[in-house]
Design a protein around this nucleic acid. Structure first.
Length: 869
RNA sequence: GGUCCGGUGGCGGAACUGGCAGACGCGUUGGACUUAAAAUCCAAUUCCAUUAAACCGGAGUGAGGGUUCGAUUCCCUCCCGGACCACCA
């Protein structure tokens, strides 16, 4: 018997598949399309570890199955190659980022090719290719034309170590996601994309995405962070003794709890708030206030948002805020717990019903006024609430500073004039109506989502295609002049002045204005890494198009992506940016659909055998090349799918891998005796085969790939048992006492049993195995089973519903819900027949002796439960 | 603190819509083969009690309660773990 030589087989089929261009995607539009996509990798210098290809293997299985299902399948791969790591590596090693990136791509590609993936490499894309980023730049100019890209000088987040501005999305616990440095706020001229203009659509259209996992939709929802409330017009007066006198400065605050307006006891501004700079505002302790503002400026965001930290603030002496609801004057503070970039940068403080305000009020000895009572909890019925108009305030915050608790839930209003007795939802509504009627405020929706800071002061990114002309202002580069290529530089170190390294290349910077032809300077900032990845899936459809981002007819056929697989860490960055970018392209008529990804599945990490994340630092990295050499790509593919649920993270186990390899060895062994196959499969095998076909067809669609593998293992075990009853069981010593009780199995049966699998049925098994272990399956399909064409050109087998029906079943017999027997009965058995059969069972008899039956539960084909009195 | 997800043998995990818990794989133990080892093959493997061996029996899916003839699955309370967000008013 020949041994399963994975190295030979895999090399052989890689070559053949390549020669016959098996994976080349055609434009045959008569067939239905299927677009299955992996999040393309950033080709880092470290190369792939075994965790990276997990998602690629899964999409490959889906792609191969769909190929066999008659679909025209697009399964492409490319490189998200701009970004800081390449640049940082370049700085350290004095290699141009482009050189290093090209090198990494070669490594990645060779590693991927060994796994036997169905990528059509003719469609390979690279975000750093000028022919690619031309269209990234083009889209950006279109956004500018629509007013969605603008320049801003608002303070942005700045990483002092990477020396670049960042977007909110690039932070992790208040630190730079790349290098872990504490970040600062720095006022700088920046390009910003008005993604907030799409906030509502990005949120509402999540409902359309039924093929997305709820967890990821939830993350996006939280990230967009829509909250409904009111903008309320307070005003500032400068001398308390002259209350009501002019001048008054209007001050808008945002709140989600307009129902608590009567409970306001002070007002807080963010230290950055514009109104403080107003000369007319007479602040008696201006020195102290300015000092606080300066300190706040110096603090890093991390220090400022540290949750354990005490809240600090300074009272604006001599300034009072007027509550528009009751004309009451309350003190005004500045405090850095109020964020400048959310809402209006000012809040009305209701310490009785907001934890942060409560904490602050306790610290600075401010009054706490209860206006919502918890006593009438919203769970109580309306009638009860009416009876309890003045409710027990004892569970709300207390006026005296000794005790009391803050109460932030919904309740019923008290001490609130015209809101008294109303439940929170009603009170909110009524207050907003009143404010609008009086012109003292309005209903307002706010989002946590911020506009997308789009400038990076680094070298290795797409140049922003604009020039600054003294006469014409900011002018886009003409479309015919795109792409604006990234120039060669000698030094790509950050300048440290907040300018991009590109600013030093005067040849490149100095240009002419596309509008007036006069002298102008190029924009020297580059785009963030997320730019190129926001639309790459469209480029695979039409990778060589020089006239358009994508041909709209081709896009109509291939879009949207049917199945998208990648890490959950991209739920709130890449996936929001891509949805936004896509919707924008849809709005300008460049694409046909308004959502890019029909179905989204996240991949769980593979962690190291020691339970830690695979990393050089822990020395627990496993290179797929080594595994493939030793055990084969097919064994690695099968194992990675078998490890656990696809979305769960799981620790690598080389022992576990050997189980997958053994399974393939068994398949090989069965194929070696193919000539001894029986004409027809045994009944049990053929039934099991068809059940397996059904299960795998269904489970692949649901991405339950681990149970697919186990189903195939079960089938393989069964085939071996039935085919060679002797080799399986000849050494089994039948317990002597059992032998007395029943018939021992026949011994010495050395011929292949008639119960085994036929050649034809074995071929069907090979077909369903093929997506998982393509090399082995192809070898058996062509070399052993004598097929002329690839197994991937064969038609996916259908299960026969007749064959999966069981004639006899094991009926569960329960007595009082406890299992007492399982009896073998015809599948179609009726309730009465089932009861009669059950009564014949010795154990059932025993339990029924002297007992009266009160109830019978019968689930046809499954179970009989006899309930006794 | 918020939102979401999860908790099943020694380990990874399976279980349709509420219906035999522990499939499949790893590991372990015993056996066959071998001069021996590896590999391979066969068998056992939730726990407790019982037994020469077994049947039979009891407990059991983080803890406690509930709904139900019946709960890993549904509901409530709590504990633990993970992911994401986090002073967003």
């Amino acid at each position: 018997m020949e041994k399963y030589n994975h190295q030979e087989i895999e090399a052989k089929w890689h070559k053949k598949w390549d020669e016959e261009k098996l994976y080349q995607v055609g434009e045959d539009k008569s067939r239905p399309k299927y677009y299955v996509l992996d999040m393309f990798p950033y080709p880092s210098g470290a190369g792939l570890h075994v965790g990276h290809p997990k998602g690629y293997i899964a999409t490959d299985i889906l792609a191969r199955m769909k190929m066999m299902g008659g679909f025209n399948v697009l399964h492409p791969m490319g490189w998200d190659a701009f970004g800081l790591p390449a640049e940082n590596f370049a700085l350290k090693n004095k290699v141009h980022p482009a050189t290093q990136t090209a090198k990494n791509v070669v490594t990645y590609k060779s590693q991927l090719q060994k796994i036997g993936l169905t990528y059509d490499w003719d469609r390979e894309i690279n975000t750093t290719d000028p022919e690619y980023y031309k269209w990234t730049q083009w889209a950006f100019i279109k956004m500018w034309e629509k007013g969605l890209a603008y320049e801003s000088t608002a303070p942005i987040i700045w990483c002092p170590s990477c020396q670049t501005g960042l977007a909110m999305e690039d932070l992790e616990e208040g630190r730079c996601e790349r290098c872990g440095s504490e970040i600062e706020r720095k006022p700088m001229k920046q390009w910003v994309i008005k993604i907030t203009a799409y906030a509502d659509r990005l949120l509402n259209d999540l409902d359309k995405l039924s093929g997305w996992e709820d967890s990821i939709k939830e993350m996006q929802k939280n990230w967009i962070g829509r909250s409904e409330g009111a903008e309320i017009n307070f005003s500032l007066v400068c001398h308390p003794e002259r209350s009501g006198a002019e001048p008054r400065d209007p001050l808008k605050v945002f709140t989600t709890r307009p129902d608590t307006l009567f409970g306001v006891t002070y007002v807080v501004l963010a230290p950055e708030h514009e109104i403080i700079k107003n000369e007319k505002l007479i602040i008696k302790n201006k020195k102290e206030v300015d000092q606080y503002i300066n300190e706040a400026k110096k603090k890093s965001d991390l220090q400022r948002t540290d949750l354990n930290k005490d809240k600090t603030g300074v009272k604006l002496e001599g300034v009072m805020a007027v509550n528009p609801a009751n004309g009451e004057e309350v003190p005004v503070f500045i405090a850095d717990y109020v964020l400048p970039n959310y809402g209006t940068g000012a809040i009305m403080a209701v310490p009785a019903h907001d934890e942060r305000d409560f904490e602050f009020a306790r610290k600075y000895d401010l009054p706490i006024k209860t206006v919502v009572s918890s006593f009438c909890h919203p769970e109580r019925s309306d009638s009860e609430v009416k009876d309890l108009k003045i409710a027990d305030p004892s569970r709300g915050a207390q006026d005296d500073k000794g005790g009391g608790d803050v109460f932030c839930d919904d309740g019923v209003n008290i001490n609130s004039d015209f809101l008294n007795g109303l439940k929170t939802a009603e009170a909110k509504k009524k207050m907003i109506e009143w404010l609008e009627k009086e012109g003292k405020g309005k209903m307002k929706v706010n989002y946590k989502l911020n506009d997308w800071v789009f400038s990076r002061q680094r070298y290795w990114g797409e140049p922003i295609p604009f020039v600054h002309c003294a006469k014409c202002g900011t002018v886009p580069v003409a479309e015919k002049d795109l792409p604006v290529r990234l120039p060669e530089v000698e030094h790509y170190e950050p300048t440290g002045t907040g300018e991009s390294p590109l600013a030093n290349i005067s040849d490149w910077v100095n240009t002419t204005c596309p509008k007036c032809g006069g002298q102008a300077k190029r924009e020297t900032n580059t785009m963030p890494q997320w730019a190129g990845s926001s639309w790459y899936y469209l480029r695979y459809i039409d990778p060589k198009n020089s006239q358009a981002l994508v041909d709209k007819e081709k896009e109509k056929y291939w879009s949207p992506v049917d199945f998208y697989v990648g890490g959950a860490e991209h739920a709130t960055r890449h996936l929001i940016y891509a949805r936004f970018w896509h919707k924008f392209l849809f709005d300008i008529g460049a694409v046909n659909y308004d959502e890019p990804f029909t179905r989204l599945q996240h991949v769980g990490l593979i962690i190291g055998e020691d339970g830690r994340k695979m990393s050089k630092r822990w020395g627990n990295v496993i290179n797929p090349d080594d595994i493939i050499e030793k055990f084969g790509a097919d064994a690695m593919r099968v194992y990675e799918m078998f490890m656990g649920p696809f979305g769960a993270s799981c620790a690598w186990s080389t022992n576990g891998l050997t189980g997958a390899r053994k399974f393939l060895d068994h398949v090989w062994a069965i194929s070696e005796s193919i000539e001894q196959r029986t004409e027809n499969s045994g009944k049990e095998i053929s039934s099991l085969l068809h059940k397996t076909i059904k299960k795998i067809s269904e489970d692949i669609a649901e991405f339950k790939l681990n149970t697919c593998v186990s189903a195939m293992m079960i089938l393989t075990n069964e085939i071996e048992k039935k085919t060679h009853p002797v080799s399986r069981g000849s050494n089994y010593r039948y317990p002597p006492r059992l032998a007395e009780l029943g018939t021992p199995p026949a011994e010495g049966n050395s011929h292949p049993s008639q119960e085994g699998i036929s050649r034809e049925d074995f071929a069907k098994f090979i077909q369903i195995l093929a997506p998982f272990a393509p090399h082995l399956a192809e070898e058996i399909w062509q070399e052993k089973l004598g097929n002329q064409a690839s197994v991937f050109k064969s038609v996916w087998p259908k299960f026969d519903p007749e064959l999966i029906k069981d004639e006899t079943i094991n009926l569960i017999v329960q007595i009082n819900g406890k299992l007492r027997a399982t009896i073998s009965v015809p599948a179609e058995i009726s309730q009465n027949e089932a009861i009669n059969s059950a009564r014949e069972n010795d154990n059932v008899k025993k339990w029924l002796v002297g007992k009266e039956i009160s109830k019978i539960i019968f689930v046809p084909g499954k179970l009989l439960n006899i309930v006794l009195k």
